[in-house]
């Protein structure tokens, strides 16, 4: 696959053309700059200036996210993120960026993309706090409360009458766990003749122990510390919706609670104790958290993480990665598989 140059003025020109067609206004794109953090979608910030033929001129602070064909989870589609953000846009108490436009037509800028509102804030990273700086327990807890409340709001959305209904792939509540297992097995190329025994064992275990979902909700799919913005100690936006789907809400609860995101603490995301996390979630949603299902989805979460690491390694080996940090990810496969082994051992 030929690398596409998204660093030059060509991207700006293509984006202006797209925005002009969408808004039927004159458009200029300025101050384009790329953020370096993600290994998946490529993110740019820019100012969009819109004028005529009707309405006052306006200037919007915007984000362009491009589904890099060389990215960690390629190939991408922007539509699920757009559908979910649109469906959730009126959900009370849920800070998310407004989604303006998207396209999965690769002829426009060379890959799927979405344009959203830019929200102020920074990304708190638990591992940064471990390597330096003092932990502010009260500030973490305030963030932890926002973190639970936003998840409860996502899971409380009555999605059936919204654009999110289009996320459905027809999988019944009885089968969503097996469906997710299959999805990540496929990502890791499983089953395969050279499978790592721990991956194969986990796949069989997940298939054998899958339980029906108590209810089907919008599932963020990557709900964790690192995927939200915060400002002045409050969450300002939940980001990174590329894995959004309909499924068992315990999937997000399990993923958020993985030890790998806890910065060496016993707290969910390094922010809030598990018991408090679940109690507040139950209070906000009116739904019981089943610890057995959370544990199952922690195992599925680690399996998913291992599948991503395998995918990253194979992208590097095949020359299909543009980001060398993916090679560093490959070294984390063995520790991840050992943690997977430990969690299966501890399953109720």
């Amino acid at each position: 696959m030929e690398a596409i140059d998204w660093s030059g003025p060509d991207l700006q020109r293509r984006l202006e053309t797209f925005l002009r067609e969408k808004t039927r206004r004159t458009v200029s794109v300025a101050n384009m700059h790329r953020f370096s953090a993600g290994m998946s979608w490529i993110t740019f910030g820019f100012i969009g200036r819109f004028d005529g033929p009707e309405g006052a001129p306006e200037s919007l602070d915007l984000i362009l996210r491009i589904g890099d064909p060389y990215g960690l989870l390629a190939p991408y589609r922007a539509e699920p993120e757009f559908l979910a953000l649109t469906a959730l846009s009126k959900t009370p108490g849920l800070p998310i960026p407004r989604a303006y436009w998207y396209s999965d037509d690769e002829s426009i800028i060379g890959a799927p993309f979405i344009v959203t509102q830019r929200v102020d804030g920074e990304t708190p990273m638990p591992w940064k706090r471990v390597s330096g700086g003092q932990r502010d327990v009260a500030a973490d807890l305030a963030l932890g409360h926002d973190f639970v409340d936003a998840l409860a709001a996502i899971h409380s959305c009555e999605w059936a009458e919204t654009s999110a209904a289009k996320l459905s792939d027809g999988v019944a509540a009885d089968d969503v766990a097996r469906h997710e297992t299959k999805r990540w097995s496929a990502h890791a190329g499983m089953p395969r003749s050279d499978a790592h025994p721990q991956m194969h064992y986990a796949m069989r275990w997940l298939e054998a122990n899958a339980s029906p979902a108590p209810r089907i909700t919008i599932v963020h799919g990557d709900y964790r510390v690192g995927n939200f913005l915060a400002l002045d100690g409050r969450i300002t936006a939940i980001l990174d919706w590329e894995l959004v789907h309909l499924g068992d809400p315990h999937e997000d609860l399990g993923w958020a609670a993985l030890r790998v995101f806890a910065a060496g603490t016993s707290r969910v995301g390094g922010l809030i104790e598990r018991d408090e996390f679940y109690a507040r979630y139950e209070e906000k949603t009116g739904q019981k958290v089943r610890r057995d299902l959370v544990h199952y989805y922690e195992i599925l979460g680690l399996y998913k993480q291992a599948a991503m690491l395998i995918g990253a390694t194979e992208r590097v080996s095949a020359g299909r990665a543009r980001d060398y940090r993916m090679a560093a990810m490959g070294f984390q496969l063995t520790p991840t598989l050992l943690e997977l082994n430990r969690l299966i051992e501890a399953a109720p």
Binding site: F35, S36, A37, E122, T123, M125, W127, K128, S131, R325, A328, M329, F331, Q332, T334, P335
Partner: peptide
């Protein structure tokens, strides 16, 4: 043989 990954360093200067 596997040391812990330095994701802090890899997360970049603009975080």
């Amino acid at each position: 043989l596997v040391p812990r990954a330095d994701y802090s360093g890899m997360a970049g200067a603009d975080d």
